[in-house]
Simulated scan of single mutants.
Amino acid sequence: MTLEADGRGAAEDFMEKVFGDYVGANAIFMAAIGDRLGLFKDFASNGPATSAELAARTGLAERYLREWLDGMAAAGYLIFDEADGRYSMPEAYAPVLAEESGMMFLGAAFFDYSTNYGETFHALLEAFRSGDGVPQELYGQEVAESIERFTAPWFEHQLVPVWLPLMPEARARLEAGARVCDVGCGQGRAVIKLAQAFPECELVGLDRYEPAIQAATEHARAAGVGDRVRFELHDGAAGLPGRFDVVTTFDVLHDSADPAGLLAAIHDGLDPEGRYVCVDINCADRSQDNVGPMGTVLYGLSLAYCLPVSLARGGAGLGTCGLPEGRLREMALAAGFSQVRRLPVDDPFNNVYELSR
């Protein structure tokens, strides 16, 4: 084979890879439509349908549904039965496509994240030119809801039954009625879940994004714990509002404009015998080791949100992969923590740490 032919073969192989990536992008785009309009949930609840039947069930336009059904069948998300002209979703697909907050649900993680961030795409291009960031406020409510949906399985299925049993000191304090502070609380799901599991605790959630505080307050009231928790518009890096037995952050530290300052504030606001529970990204210490499918996802998320939001505040700009275990340990020790323990949790996305003052 000549050098020219060999080069052409490599180019064709790469062209096939790019085409495969584009196929996946189109599948995710169409799946995002189905997720946002509740179409997968409708199939899970009501079974097979023609486009006309699905239109009658959902109140959506038949012509658009017909195109979407054919596209999802082409992508392998739905199955078309030529005998009766109906489309169906295999039962095994429901946990992935339709079971909100389930451990296998990917609606928010993939579908939301691949469409909502398009609204800030041009702002991101300008940030590439200027070196500035993209303010969190520009992302809007839909992105905040996407983050809420993405993180929901952690709090619904992991925090209390899986993670806390691996931290006996922290759990004992919670059972005894701890003073708890969740920094970067978002819409409050972690605070609410802890309030439900440990009714003797006094809990506060902090966030610098006012719409998140408003949503968290409403969610706490709806969950029946509004009288036992509070949410404050506050930047944790400026110092915690008191002394706490347990402090938590859930995928917050790497997004922070001042992660070193936030670690120092948490250290100073923690009771001498207290515990800091830190959940952050499971990534390699060396960037060249963050490769393959998961590395691609992490760097895509970083460019879409984590990096520009931090830089918009003149921050450190760690990015999604900027806080591997080695760097977290280094920064935590510099902030005054005496011990950083990584829990034996098998999670491809997150590491869970327990830090002692």
Rank of each mutant, 00 (worst) to 15 (best):
A127P: 01
E218C: 01
A32D: 08
G261M: 09
D227R: 12
D255K: 04
Q141M: 09
V352K: 06
E99T: 14
F231Y: 15
G38V: 08
I33Q: 12
C306Q: 07
P48E: 10
L69P: 02
A223D: 05
F121P: 01
G236K: 12
A195P: 00
D258K: 11
P241E: 04
L355F: 03
L206Y: 10
E99S: 14
A49G: 13
E62I: 10
R357K: 14
G326H: 03
P308T: 10
P241V: 05
L60K: 08
M30E: 09
G76Y: 07
M30D: 12
G292Q: 02
E175N: 06
R228N: 09
G239I: 09
E145P: 00
V225Q: 00
A44M: 09
V309G: 01
G261F: 11
L3E: 15
V134P: 02
L343R: 02
P165V: 05
D251A: 14
G300W: 01
D42F: 00
T151L: 13
L65H: 00
Q141G: 04
A223W: 06
L194N: 10
A212T: 08
P161K: 11
F231K: 04
L60W: 07
Y87S: 03
V180I: 15
A176L: 05
G118K: 08
R173T: 02
A98G: 13
R329S: 01
G336P: 06
A92Y: 14
L355R: 03
L37A: 12
Y64I: 05
A212H: 15
F150N: 14
G292W: 01
A237L: 10
F43Q: 12
E200I: 00
N26S: 08
D13K: 15
L328T: 03
L323P: 05
F19G: 01
V160F: 11
